[in-house]
Simulated scan of single mutants.
Amino acid sequence: MVDPVLPLRAVRMHALSPADMGEWPATLPPMEQLLTQGLEFGRITVLTGDNGAGKSTVVEAIAGAYGLNVEGGGTGAMHSTRATESPLVDHLQLVRGAGASKKGFFLRAETMHSLFTYYEEIGVGGVMHERSHGESFLEIVSERSRIGGLWLLDEPESALSLSGCLALLGLLRDLVAGGAQIILSTHSPVLAALPGADLYELGPWGIRAATYDDLDLVRTWRSFLESPQRFLRHLG
């Protein structure tokens, strides 16, 4: 049963702005399923899947529909580089919890440089470009943890080492303990192990719930680590 006070209880296609199901991104099986069947969210949701499956598209569209800057940051972040977001945001209706926090924060690895630059320009968070990418990423999560509400993270492992991923898990655990809701897309088996998460795989089948051990990314990483040469011999 979905917690009625979550910032985001579910998403579905907006009745007043239906998507053209013959146009991208609705032609992707996960997007078609999301639009026609909707998707409910618990306190922690982790989305996995191969490149191009639609994980980032979903997270980005939710961020935009929620009122967050699609290039990262909170509702008041004004930075913008080049608009590349999908039209999915225009066709989503969010089901919010009654009385739940409307605050939130969006972190996406591919636009962190512009977000750091924006914060430096407005005098927030110190000089982030003088730190490593991973250090800055963890610092911004720690500094903004007071925001609470809905936290969206798109493939944050791009900025992080293994120890950095473990540190992020600790920060996310603390956010949840403080009442925040987490939606995370990832290729990392470490981040997919976030305790208490509902796990979903996106792919040609659409969107399906999965257990950790049955995730394709977990099984593939285990196979690679057990025998790297089985994979490397196909490189030619």
Rank of each mutant, 00 (worst) to 15 (best):
V176Y: 08
L169G: 00
A180G: 07
A177N: 13
L172E: 02
P156M: 13
I182P: 07
A159G: 04
G164Y: 03
G170Q: 12
V176W: 13
L169D: 01
D174N: 10
L162D: 13
I182Q: 04
L184V: 04
L168V: 04
I183A: 14
D174F: 00
L175K: 15
A180H: 09
S185Y: 09
A177P: 05
L166C: 01
I183C: 10
R173C: 00
A167N: 04
L172I: 02
L160F: 00
L160N: 07
D154T: 09
I183D: 13
V176C: 03
L171T: 00
I183E: 05
Q181D: 02
I183H: 10
S161G: 07
S158E: 11
G178E: 11
L171Q: 12
A177D: 11
L168I: 06
E157T: 07
G170D: 14
Q181F: 09
P156W: 13
G164H: 01
A177T: 08
I183K: 11
L166R: 11
G179H: 11
G170E: 14
L175H: 14
V176Q: 09
G178C: 02
A167Y: 04
G178S: 09
G178Q: 02
D154R: 05
S161P: 12
G164K: 01
I183P: 07
G170F: 05
A180T: 14
C165R: 08
A180P: 09
T186L: 06
I183Y: 06
E155A: 14
L166W: 05
L169V: 00
S161F: 10
A167D: 01
S185V: 14
G179W: 13
L169F: 00
V176E: 09
A180F: 05
I183W: 12
A177Q: 12
L169S: 02
G178R: 08
G178F: 01
A180I: 05
P156I: 09
G164F: 06
I182H: 06
S163E: 15
A177M: 08
L166A: 10
L162S: 15
E157P: 06
S158D: 14
G164P: 01
I183Q: 14
L168H: 03
L166Q: 05
V176T: 10
L162F: 15
I182Y: 04
L160E: 03
A159Q: 08
L168K: 01
T186I: 05
T186P: 06
L184T: 07
